[in-house]
């Protein structure tokens, strides 16, 4: 395994955006609402285009092209959900607190997420190692929400890992729990920032990474959803560089 849960010296120039008081949070929510609403118009055009392309057999698209459009549509679908969530804070609350567990296999969910992100992984020439336990036990969890959790974690790993870096997705079982670790060889998070990364509207700023695509909700949402499953989400440094996000879920809710 190329990663270990060990602390390391911070090597990146990072700082955390401050949003400590209620006023800042209100402003952030307003900004998010405006941005989310503006995003709907271009997103509508993208989704309608996908639908027409997928339906119009006269275009003679190859299987590969159709697959890519389907993947793009899945991403657009997720963006709609995200926008809907951001536009309605009360809906965010219910989204976070209402979990609907069904029986499923975490490894299948992880494989689905990695597949969805395949184009971005390929684009950055990242190596993704799927170190999944053969145990593949069926457990109770909200698959839709856990999918979102892993998308957030993998999205961060891709975003903060330089081209040709590596990401490791691993699962392991104990008598009572399943552990899911997503590790990368990216820039990592300095100690000073760690205490804030799971708070709302917090983003780790990095001069090497374009943060404009995020709003600082991903890790907050991930942690709350995992806690709704009576689980934990923790950050540790990877060795020699990068991040490890470790999720621990009970095998029985």
């Amino acid at each position: 395994m190329f990663w270990k849960n060990k602390k390391r010296e911070s090597v990146c120039n990072l700082s955390v955006a401050q949003a400590d008081n209620q006023k800042d949070e209100t402003v952030s929510q307003e900004t998010v609402s405006v941005i989310a609403h503006q995003l709907r118009a271009p997103l509508s055009a993208i989704r309608l285009t996908h639908q027409l392309l997928l339906e119009n057999t006269q275009m003679n698209l190859t299987a590969k092209q159709l697959h890519l459009i389907q993947q793009a549509e899945l991403c657009a679908d997720r963006m709609v959900l995200l926008i809907d969530t951001l536009l309605a804070p009360e809906q965010l609350k219910s989204y976070l607190t209402e979990v609907a567990p069904t029986k499923g296999i975490i490894e299948d969910t992880l494989q689905g997420v990695v597949e969805e992100m395949g184009a971005r992984i390929e684009h950055k020439e990242l190596q993704v190692y799927m170190d999944l336990s053969p145990q593949r036990e069926s457990i109770l969890y909200d698959e839709v929400k856990m999918y979102d959790v892993f998308v957030n974690l993998l999205d961060n790993a891709i975003k903060y890992t330089p081209a040709k870096g590596a990401i490791n997705v691993a699962t392991s079982y104990t008598d009572s729990h399943i552990q899911i670790a997503i590790a990368d060889t990216g820039v990592g998070i300095p100690d000073i920032c760690i205490s804030k990364i799971f708070q709302k509207f917090q983003q780790v700023e990095n001069s090497n990474v374009n943060n404009s695509e995020g709003v600082g909700l991903g890790l907050y949402i991930a942690k709350v959803i995992i806690e709704q499953h009576n689980g934990t989400l923790q950050y540790t440094h990877n060795d020699p560089t990068g991040s490890v996000f470790t999720t621990v879920l009970p095998r029985v809710l």
Binding site: R47, E55, V80
Partner: peptide
């Protein structure tokens, strides 16, 4: 709602 519309 446009962004959630199924054309069919």
């Amino acid at each position: 709602i446009k962004s959630s519309t199924d054309l069919n």
